[in-house]
Write a protein that binds this DNA or RNA. Sequence first.
DNA 1: GATGAATGAGGATTCATTCAT
DNA 2: TATGAATGAATCCTCATTCAT
Lengths: 224, 224, 224, 224
Amino acid sequence: MPRKLPTQGRANQTVAAILESAAHILETEGIHGYNTNAVAARAGVSIGSLYQYFGSKDAVTMALIAAEAEDLQVAVGAAVTMRDPNAALDTLITAAVDHQLRRPRVAALLDLEERRLLRPANGDSATGRLLPVVVNVVEKLYGPHRELPLLCADLIAITRALCDAAGEGRRESRIALRDRIRKAIHGYLREQFGVPAKTPSARPSGESRSPRQSRRSAYHGPSS
Amino acid sequence: MPRKLPTQGRANQTVAAILESAAHILETEGIHGYNTNAVAARAGVSIGSLYQYFGSKDAVTMALIAAEAEDLQVAVGAAVTMRDPNAALDTLITAAVDHQLRRPRVAALLDLEERRLLRPANGDSATGRLLPVVVNVVEKLYGPHRELPLLCADLIAITRALCDAAGEGRRESRIALRDRIRKAIHGYLREQFGVPAKTPSARPSGESRSPRQSRRSAYHGPSS
Amino acid sequence: MPRKLPTQGRANQTVAAILESAAHILETEGIHGYNTNAVAARAGVSIGSLYQYFGSKDAVTMALIAAEAEDLQVAVGAAVTMRDPNAALDTLITAAVDHQLRRPRVAALLDLEERRLLRPANGDSATGRLLPVVVNVVEKLYGPHRELPLLCADLIAITRALCDAAGEGRRESRIALRDRIRKAIHGYLREQFGVPAKTPSARPSGESRSPRQSRRSAYHGPSS
Amino acid sequence: MPRKLPTQGRANQTVAAILESAAHILETEGIHGYNTNAVAARAGVSIGSLYQYFGSKDAVTMALIAAEAEDLQVAVGAAVTMRDPNAALDTLITAAVDHQLRRPRVAALLDLEERRLLRPANGDSATGRLLPVVVNVVEKLYGPHRELPLLCADLIAITRALCDAAGEGRRESRIALRDRIRKAIHGYLREQFGVPAKTPSARPSGESRSPRQSRRSAYHGPSS
DNA sequence: GATGAATGAGGATTCATTCAT
DNA sequence: TATGAATGAATCCTCATTCAT
């Protein structure tokens, strides 16, 4: 690592170019246009170089999955250190939304590939590392539950689904999407926990408020 | 007419065998094992016969999508005629669960293919026909909402996501899954409408009633 | 032959329908659309029936070649009996033009196939039966020549080429085409024979005249 | 640059080998044996290599057409610069003969394919570039004519037909063939113009000299 | 005889991967 | 190390032909 840093730098550049190219092709052409020759060509490197850095097409895909998940991982890392579980959850949701909306199709397609590629040596999927954090946050927010991992996996699935749905076709602000995801998550959890908590509105600051009463005024619709 | 019937029968059998084979291969091998030769071989017919009935591989896929969606369509038809919107919603959920759990992977993969195959053409996907029914049912249950189609699309996406998640890996009873979907749906809607639904979704037990109160004190976030 | 005439009639009808269909497909789709299934379908018979009457695709093609050449054969037969060689030649030319222009593409494509199919058991091509007649006519018109068969084969090739060229693209009257063919033929022969004969204008009657002199009055063009 | 040249050389070799193989197979097997696998095999390259250089079978065919027409184009270029129209015409005829006789069947089959492949696209066939040159030469030789392009297209068709006819079966010297073509061409033109050409075409002997003069009196038209 | 479902060899094309330079 | 030409197994699809009904 200390030696031949310039080389390392070039290698890193090449790897980055390949992954960027792969993502772009997946986004614009779908799986059917996703082949190593196209990826190498668009990356501006030879096919031989691609195979120098990645032993196979699947290796490229896996690296892309990891790279795409990276910003998510950053958010996960940040969430872990937060005191306020609400802020932590918001951080995760925001990261998920940003991630999925940046390249909606890539995210969806990589989901598929991830399932296939993780079959043999599973364990370290993005979800795998995400789940415990979510469990931790939710437990802080809603208390213990004997099926918490299952519920949190559901939350992740729901979040992903809403992002995917938002990605194809309908264009809307990420704020609106975030709001809907928050409602889906808290609605689900409240049903599961049998609690009248209400979705906190987007206010990433205010580390604490006594929500239940004060938030009532947020209701609209037939009720109040 | 008697002349043609045995022939017709054979043709129908062949078509059915091909679709069954296609579904089986998608389920067990994934998209990577899904090719016309394999489908024909497993169906016990020659590749030529496959192409006698389906003009292309995509045609097979589309027919499979239609066939797999058929039971869903039946449920949709039934739900349309129901007076009780709660029962109608349950019918739809049950159908979705049954459909997705029968061949979890097929359902997920066909979703992907459907997106690709419907891009150029019309919009009569399974979701397309499902959405208005859901909108109608939800409106009866929760009242009007200016973004009802969007919300209902979310409901469909959520349902699908939970089924998909249930499909891969964890095995559980469809009753439990149905219950979780119901909670996700009603939780989301209650958040969106800010109102308790006219009819609560699941009353399977009394067990989960009491925790609701006692756990209250554990909440952080908006509450405390 | 005397018995089961009705059956024979039906068979003939079927055969005729198949050949007509084959010609139509060759004309409109070219060799690439010319396959037995399409021919049978367009003829309104089953593929099985086609193979009942023709042992193979090549058999269909050969029958089509024979059928298409039939009107040419009629003209050949007529030409043989004519006294006036000029009228005979005109008959042949007219037949060739009519034949080639009715279905220009079929004629050209069958030419190709004929060459392939006649390789093994050649001898009875349309040209084969045509050549001696042409030789005979030309000899009467222009006198003997030691390479007459070669010259006459050239005449046939020239005629065919001009018809083919007329078939694709440029539309013109068959009278004009006939005139050009006549000029090409007589021009060639005059060069070969070193003779001042001039192309007779189209006057299919006058069974006999001493051509060289009497034909003078027939000249047109810039002169007279 | 030195880096690329050997590679370029290899690529060129491969392309040349493929075209040579294609021509050879067309010549010996006809269209029925003309498929990409056979072409690649005979060229000593893999099928993949063939598709590296040619996007499709038709692309191979078109490249072959262009390659086969190349020597013709050279002759056309040479003819354009010639002062003496007779020499120019002879150059063209010789080129046509040499071209067609080198691989008679290839030339004929490519003619067919050319018609099919040029249908949709532009009109720059070999004939397309040839025609204006011929028109120019003929006009110099025989003077103006309101249908000169048509006549010259006929000349090209006639030349091609005689070459084709010479190609199949009968073997003869190209000198004899050239002579016959010259006679066909000038015979046709004299008929059309009703005039002796400014320059007689072939002077291989003295034998045909006297008739030309004596024939003059037979001409009508501009002359007499 | 007539039918048309079924067959499967054959042909076009793609693309992951290798390897000589 | 980089390159990109070459490879060939795999895949989609066609069509001449057969044969059970």
